[in-house]
Design a protein around this nucleic acid. Structure first.
Ligand SMILES: [Mn+2]
Ligand SMILES: [Mn+2]
Ligand SMILES: [Zn+2]
Ligand SMILES: [Zn+2]
Lengths: 141, 141
DNA sequence: TAGTGTGTGCAACGGAAGTGCATTAATTTG
DNA sequence: CAAATTAATGCACTTCCGTTGCACACACTA
């Protein structure tokens, strides 16, 4: 996948100091196909503290390296942003899909959020679109 | 607004036994223009217990009298369904708007959720579309 | 090397949803 | 009508997750 040098560059590009933990969490996120929760990271890095991981993810979100996902499960998920993403409402926001069977949440980055007509005087600043159902993997089993 | 007889009929129509508390909560919901949280109800009915109100709302949702709204604030909101609503994915689901200023969440029942194209083998069973920003009221002040 | 700032770990807190169980109210049945 | 059954309510308690405060460790800079 990615070696440490590459991981470092990703962090530096987003003005995040490449500490050991951050590099590992970044690697973890890169290897995951679906969105992950704090608990997921916690269970993987048993040696590290929950708070550190929490703040690592927070740092990633604040530096636009990752985005938070509210998939309606009540558990906040995280996923890496795509290259050059600024979580812009018109160009970057995409659909999220939560599978009720395998309980995984995925970014459908190809499915941008459709333009939404709001009533007069409403101003949109952020949009969240989540579809729940059965994912492709679970469906073909 | 609605008198007790009418309120009773609404409950009975949805096979909910019209207890005193349920009638009052129904009335409260009917008078509210925006979606309400359990805490909202709790603060209004100080004499009643939170659990009772919690279960009242739960009963309403289960009997399709009301629907739950996850507006991304982390606090579950509730709003009455429209006449003949069955929370059907194709016909009933609508857009929700959360105002960052007044902190209110409203149902935009006229704005049905647009048809969403999913990748192959994905099955949609539920959709949640929430727009955050500034509402019409806050915008005109 | 001393000093300053940032990152990490431990502990504790807070809000909100949910559950178990006893009590009370309503409804059915003899 | 009285007894028995069922449903609703109230209180206490739990759980889960996100978050914060503070002390210590590490890293960089003067
Ligand atoms: Mn995403
Ligand atoms: Mn609604
Ligand atoms: Zn699945
Ligand atoms: Zn507003």
């Amino acid at each position: 996948m990615f070696n440490m040098i590459e991981l470092e560059q990703i962090l530096k590009k987003n003005n995040v100091k490449p500490t050991a933990m951050r590099l590992l969490v970044l690697q973890f996120l890169l290897n995951k196909k679906s969105a992950i929760s704090l608990t997921d990271v916690e269970e993987y890095f048993v040696k590290s503290d929950r708070t550190t991981l929490y703040r690592t993810l927070k740092t990633f979100v604040e530096s636009e390296l990752a985005h938070k996902i509210d998939d309606g499960t009540g558990i906040t998920k995280y996923a890496l942003c795509e290259e050059n993403c600024h979580c812009d409402i018109d160009t970057d926001l995409h659909l999220h899909f939560h599978c009720k069977q395998c309980n995984e949440t995925v970014c459908l980055t190809d499915h941008k959020i459709p333009n939404i007509n709001l009533p007069k005087d409403f101003i949109a600043e952020d949009v969240n679109l989540v579809v729940k159902g059965i994912c492709n993997k679970c469906n073909s089993n």
